[in-house]
Design a protein around this nucleic acid. Structure first.
Lengths: 211, 211
DNA sequence: CGGCGCGCTAAGCGCTTGCTCACCTTCGGG
DNA sequence: CCCGAAGGTGAGCAAGCGCTTAGCGCGCCG
């Protein structure tokens, strides 16, 4: 398994979204599950539906995953890892706090728009996870929150931002970005880039001193 | 049925949330369904669970509602009516655009926080509705959107606001408010009033000219 | 005070669910 | 050239699902 992973290029997870899921059949099943969960929700999706979308028999699912919940966990875990990676890269990057916040919101929103099927599963199907799996994911979300809070704190310290309630504003910024997954429609008028630019501008106004 | 409704005071739907659902047993079932749908989601909730929470047998549900989906529709319809009422009252009220926007966000957020179980069902279980019922609800949401957009347009016309993209900003404002239903926790540190005040302040910064 | 109708229940029907199991194919190594 | 592991299938099991139906208790009207 790790030998197969090494044959892939190291950075192709942006180009090929589920490149880290290694047996071909397991990836096909996982992609099918993402689509189905995003469309109908976890509980309304049957294992027969997932297998059918992947062009396989229902039993094939259980060769690669122990349960339907394990499939959801794999999706949620990989998605949260990606989300955290995006925000931490923005938080630890160069530039002023304003520039980093702009980049963070822009890329986080773009991810929620471009990959809104995945994001929908990642953000709205937490309750369906088992207790242990949910706890693991919640820890990742805590770190996501911390990355944004760090940018805001930096900006306040540098005098760039005027933010009376940093934790509350962190919540609002993440909230705004995450909700994109709920309403974004690929057939709609706005491209992911446009939404990212719009939202980054709005967030910067929220934190900038009013004069 | 209308005779029974007339015996209630005209304005008690704020004090007694589901006062408009008239046979006592039907209301108990609906309240139980709201709790169950909010906790587990529509598809993961069984009719036995709803009836059990209401202290009745599973069959009792079908005396008052034709199907489980009809229950969801009743909840969604009443909830959307209430949400629209809140925003239209704010939009058509007196005061400057800034004052009306402040009031709109404050009361809309407060509703999503205080009644976050109901709001969660209303905002996140649209997909489970039948096609006709979903179309009816989407029309209500269009009007909700229009109420906020009207405030923003008024503010721009009056020179109070600097909003380059009114439809996009309308989306963002509603998005911010709606997402409260996802994360709000009654055991958390913030009261609905505090969140409403915080969010109203952030939204005003989003639309106010920067100078 | 008899009986009628309404609100409710116990039991269960037909179906779908997540998941299993016996079996089949394919294919690289001795 | 056969063999065993890996990956797949068809059929089906037990459990749980939404919903129905036959019948029960009880308040109300003649």
């Amino acid at each position: 398994m790790s030998a197969a992973e090494e044959t892939a290029e190291p950075d192709d997870d942006t180009a090929k979204p589920w490149g880290e899921v290694t047996p071909e059949a397991a990836r096909k099943l996982l992609v099918a599950a993402v689509e189905a969960f995003a469309e109908r929700g976890y509980h309304a999706t049957t294992t027969r539906d997932i297998a059918g979308r992947a062009g396989m028999s229902p039993a094939a699912l259980y060769i690669h995953y122990k349960t339907k919940e394990e499939l959801l966990h794999r999706i949620s875990r990989i998605g949260h890892d990606k989300a955290l990676e995006i925000l931490q890269a923005a938080a630890e990057g160069p530039g002023t706090a304003a520039e980093r916040l702009d980049g963070a919101v822009r890329s986080f929103v773009r991810w929620h728009a471009e990959r809104h099927t995945t994001a929908r599963v990642v953000q709205y199907e937490l309750d369906a996870l088992s207790d242990e799996h949910r706890a693991e994911i919640i820890e990742l979300r805590r770190r996501t929150d911390a990355a944004v809070r760090r940018i805001l704190n930096d900006g306040v310290k540098a005098g760039e931002f005027d933010v009376p309630d940093v934790p509350g504003t962190t919540l609002a910024v993440l909230s705004l970005c995450i909700d994109v997954a709920r309403w974004f429609n690929a057939q709609g008028r706005r491209t992911p880039d446009e939404v990212g630019a719009l939202y980054a501008g709005l967030v910067l106004r929220m934190v900038t001193a009013q004069q």
